[in-house]
């Protein structure tokens, strides 16, 4: 069975928000749209976004890590948001594991948003229906697009390629590999929701330098004669021995 997902690499995410606005841009004019913006030019502008990048500070100065943390619907394998939906508007597609909302059925009761521990759902204040990341279902299966374009908008946009996309049930996929080899983890595992999206942790590269590496025989200081050469006229053994 296929379970499509995003794997987000916190090791390279610089928090640029490209995934945020490219998602909005694709989806607002597409089949998941429009995505409303309220007070777009006034106080406290707010709108529907499927993907937001948050920022956390971890640790204390000077040992601080700044973590940029993109988050959209995690397409849980056992999504608590689905069974609670009274209308069946929320559902998980068996064929690819994407969790979707059928706007035509949704009554906007918000129950699913209370059932999602991740805060991944947003009620569109204009259409009064629940919305969330569709995993760009209208891109990834659109055979009229070139294969390179059959990716979520956010994945294509991401300048650091911090967003990987693929089938986490296929052990040979790039996402499975990344999860296995780079320590991919799910969010809030304690609830047994089995989020399909995974995160890759920060990884550090260090350099170890041994003391003798600083001396070395080919040290140019030896050439440049920091040790001054004695003048030719200075006394040497040549002056006193004959052999």
């Amino acid at each position: 069975m296929t379970q499509l997902a995003l794997v987000i690499d916190l090791n390279v995410c610089v928090g640029c928000h490209a995934c945020v606005t490219s998602c909005k841009e694709w989806n607002t004019s597409g089949s998941a749209g429009p995505m409303v913006d309220q007070n777009p030019y006034g106080a406290d502008p707010t709108g529907t976004f499927f993907n937001r990048v948050q920022t956390f500070e971890v640790g204390e100065f000077p040992n601080t890590e700044t973590v940029h943390f993109p988050k959209s619907c995690l397409h849980c394998e056992d999504p608590p948001c689905v069974p609670v939906c009274p209308t069946g508007a929320s559902y998980k597609r068996p064929e690819d594991g994407i969790v979707l909302v059928d706007y035509d059925k949704c009554i906007g009761c918000k129950y699913c948003s209370w059932a999602c521990p991740y805060g991944a759902r947003e009620l569109d204040e204009q259409q009064r229906v629940m919305k969330k990341c569709t995993l760009c279902v209208d891109r990834i299966h659109d055979m009229s697009m070139s294969p390179d374009d059959r990716l979520p908008a956010c994945v294509k946009a991401c300048p650091t390629s911090a967003r990987l996309f693929g089938d986490i049930h296929d052990p040979a996929s790039a996402v499975s590999l990344a999860i296995r080899e780079s320590g991919g983890y799910p969010l809030m595992p304690e609830w047994g929701t089995h989020p399909a999206n995974h995160y890759l942790p920060r990884r550090k590269t260090r350099i170890k330098i041994h003391a003798d590496e600083l001396e070395r025989a080919d040290n140019p200081l030896k050439v440049d004669g920091l040790l001054p050469r004695p003048a030719r006229s200075e006394p040497t053994l040549d002056d006193v021995t004959t052999w």
């Binding site: 607002t28 749209g33 429009p34 995505m35 409303v36 913006d37 309220q38 777009p40 030019y41 006034g42």
Partner: peptide, 11 residues
């Protein structure tokens, strides 16, 4: 004039 609500559709 600026609108107080925007729902861009690209149409």
């Amino acid at each position: 004039t600026r609108s107080s609500i925007l729902a861009y559709l690209g149409i």
